[in-house]
């Protein structure tokens, strides 16, 4: 299926399943990840994304199916024979070794000569901006610094694939956003395939070249961030990635005349006066503003519509102030959106 695609496949999952007792953690997943990609596995906790990552690393082996790493079957191979490295969620730094020794660990194991080892550790410390902290123990570092050491310890080995298991989960928001940009820059610089596990949809959309959305051990959709956001394949994807209005089939019938459920992004809807005309390429519904949530940059309105469905509408606060938007409560309105923005989804 990838013959038309000139890119090399880095990781190929073919019908991979992993069961823990009766629990199907990963339920017959097939997936191709290309060389040099920043690929995210996105999903809620317990959706199977971390198990997939651990199977690539070799900490778990699949109950059935095959995992290939650059064409080589690895599903039975122990972790220490695979040319991949992992950045762990809890960083897993060795507490009894200083930063340099932690980073040099993989090179020590592979018996890289001391001169080269020191050079590579120095280079990678510069890259993650920890040049002066090489002699510190992990316990003497901040969370963000530990994160960088964990990244350096994995990258210094020049693996073919780097696995990252929610590496930014423990950092505060500002630091996380800064590290997102840095990680992406590092990935582009080293050109290694990054596989990134996260439950944060914003993080996945920001950083990934492509992403897979997991739910209940299955992949719901694979695509670029724009594809996944704009054309969610299922109602789960629509609700998990960004915010969506979900209109069930019988309500949809009252709006579109077809009993096919669809989703609609809240930023695609406009608010107008109740007597406004509905343009031909738009759907229009009369309703009442039930609730107003002022969020500074934008305001979220909850509108009761005549079709019996509550729609969330997001409007940027271009000129309106908080007193304006709160005054809109209980006001009758008309909601308008272009027909093209309806996304049919499987229920």
């Amino acid at each position: 299926m990838t013959e038309s695609d000139p890119r090399q496949v880095a990781i190929r999952f073919t019908d991979v399943a992993r069961h823990f007792g009766n629990v199907k953690a990963v339920d017959h997943v097939s997936l191709d990840i290309y060389d040099g990609e920043f690929f995210s596995l996105l999903g809620p906790s317990g959706s199977g994304k971390t198990t997939c990552l651990r199977m690539i690393a070799g900490f778990e082996s699949p109950s059935s199916g095959s995992i290939q790493l650059y064409g080589e079957e690895v599903s039975k191979m122990p972790p220490y024979e695979r040319d991949v490295n992992t950045v762990f969620q809890d960083y897993a730094l060795f507490p009894h070794m200083n930063v340099q020794k932690n980073i040099a660990y993989g090179l020590m194991v592979k018996r890289v000569p001391r001169k080269e080892r020191e050079r590579r550790v120095g280079e990678i410390l510069d890259m993650v901006q920890l040049t002066t902290l090489g002699k510190r123990k992990p316990s003497q570092l901040s969370g963000g610094q530990r994160q960088r050491v964990a990244l350096a310890r994995a990258l210094v080995n020049h693996p073919r694939v780097l696995l990252l298991d929610e590496p930014l989960g423990a950092l505060d928001l500002k630091l996380r956003q800064q590290m997102q940009i840095e990680l992406k820059a590092i990935q582009q610089r080293v050109g290694i395939t990054f596989i990134y596990v996260t439950h944060d949809q914003e993080e996945a959309l920001t950083m990934s070249d492509r992403l897979a959305v997991f739910n209940h051990g299955k992949i719901e959709q694979v695509g670029t961030p724009a594809e996944v956001y704009e054309r969610p394949a299922t109602s789960f994807v629509a609700s998990f990635v960004g915010v969506s209005n979900f209109v069930e089939s019988d309500q949809a019938f009252k709006i579109t005349g077809e009993s096919k459920s669809f989703t609609l992004r809240p930023e695609k809807i406009r608010l107008a006066t109740p007597d406004a005309a509905t343009p031909g390429d738009c759907y229009g519904l009369n309703g009442t503003i039930r609730d107003v949530i002022y969020l500074g940059m934008y305001t979220r309105y909850l509108v009761d519509t005549e079709a019996g469905v509550d729609l969330t509408v997001v409007v940027q606060n271009l000129e309106s102030t908080s007193s304006d938007v709160f005054a809109a409560r209980k006001r009758p309105v008309k909601v308008l959106w272009q027909k093209a923005h309806n996304r049919a989804v499987e229920e």
């Binding site: 690393a57 070799g58 900490f59 122990p78 972790p79 220490y80 991949v84 490295n85 992992t86 762990f88 969620q89 809890d90 897993a92 730094l93 060795f94 507490p95 009894h96 660990y105 993989g106 194991v109 592979k110 310890r153 994995a154 080995n157």
Partner: peptide
């Protein structure tokens, strides 16, 4: 933590090396 032995094997260490360098010292 179990993740330390995983990290060691992830970095290429065989079980015996992991034992000597990670588990025993800790």
């Amino acid at each position: 933590p179990k993740s330390l032995t995983e990290a060691s094997s992830d970095l290429g260490a065989r079980p015996w090396y992991t034992f000597l360098r990670v588990i025993l010292p800790l």
